[in-house]
Amino acid sequence: MVANHWFSVLFLMLGIAAVSAFDSPKKTAPSKKKPLVVFVAGDHEYGGEQTLPLIAAELEKNYGVRTQVLKSFPDQNAEKNIPGLEALREADLAVFFLRWRQLPPDQLQYLDEYLNSSKPVMGFRTSTHAFNFPKGHASEAWNAFGERAFGSPPGWGKAGHTHYGHKSTTDVTVIAEAAKHPILTGVPSAFHAASWLYRVRPDYPPQDATPLLMGKSVNPDKAAIDNPVAWTWKNKANAKVFFTTLGHPEDFQQEGVQRLTINAIHWLLGKPVPKKWKGKIEINVPYRGIVK
């Protein structure tokens, strides 16, 4: 009887243990989300709404990055509406290609939140003058967005910010002191860009920025000086920055500019710059110019 009693107790305990093991959730390592890059486009002139989605698709396909592309609505000339900017709250990196927008306060709030978050920022060309509110407007301070975000001049015409004519082009060279920067991996030491050179000197980028590429105007329409066309920086919100004044759609056809862009995105995300290039991206967007 005693043996039977202890056999029954043992059987019951084994049964309870088996049920407990079955019911207990298995501990699994938390899945790490791919970083999210949010592109914000609306530039009148250079077709950023067409080039940036091609960059985004390449990141999704070959580089383990999630992307979202936000565009001015209903087209590139719509200066007062970029739907979906709340996506910036989830972004790990924001990339801007804007020109002379006049967004409403509720949309500017999402930008302000992001810029205050210390998360990295990246910009192309006309983002030096992303906003163009009239003098005295409640949002006029946003005209200096480029200075706040990227260390560029605070708007077109400010601090001598101009260019050297639509018939000019730019010879670009790697700055020797920056040649080993990860962003320049695979970027040719010299190449020619369709973008007419932007003047940002003498006051920009800031002295604590790191210029990466220097531009020399070819066939300028006025006396020209050499100017940085790409730099890194840490802005006042302590965010990592990459900015380039390149951005003509023909620039994006060049493999070197494509690598510069993909490299910069990895660097800003804190990811290793790809040692192996996945190959040239097909970007054949025509230069549009300003068409109203």
Results as ranks from 00 to 15, higher is better:
150 F>R: 11
170 T>L: 03
157 G>W: 11
154 P>W: 14
261 T>D: 03
188 P>K: 01
264 A>Q: 01
24 S>Y: 09
194 A>W: 04
82 I>S: 10
197 L>G: 08
77 N>G: 06
151 G>F: 10
248 H>E: 12
18 A>F: 15
238 N>T: 08
98 L>W: 11
95 V>F: 13
32 K>Q: 06
16 I>D: 00
38 V>R: 06
123 G>Y: 12
121 V>R: 05
70 L>I: 06
267 W>Y: 12
193 A>G: 05
253 Q>Y: 07
11 F>N: 00
228 P>F: 10
144 A>S: 14
122 M>Q: 07
49 E>L: 14
272 P>Q: 05
184 L>K: 04
201 R>Q: 09
282 E>T: 15
286 P>D: 09
240 K>E: 09
180 K>R: 13
178 A>C: 02
115 L>G: 04
200 V>P: 00
76 Q>P: 03
146 G>T: 12
23 D>Y: 13
53 P>W: 13
49 E>F: 14
259 R>K: 15
149 A>R: 10
72 S>R: 07
232 T>H: 08
205 P>W: 01
85 L>A: 03
245 T>K: 05
50 Q>N: 14
96 F>D: 06
236 K>Q: 15
65 V>M: 03
261 T>C: 04
273 V>T: 08
109 Q>I: 00
23 D>W: 13
215 G>E: 02
116 N>S: 10
162 T>R: 07
281 I>K: 12
29 A>E: 05
7 F>W: 03
176 A>T: 12
19 V>E: 02
56 A>F: 10
21 A>N: 10
28 T>S: 05
138 A>S: 14
130 A>S: 14
47 G>N: 08
270 G>S: 06
9 V>F: 08
92 D>E: 06
106 D>Y: 08
43 D>G: 06
99 R>V: 01
75 D>L: 02
116 N>E: 08
199 R>E: 13
141 A>H: 11
97 F>L: 03
132 N>Y: 10
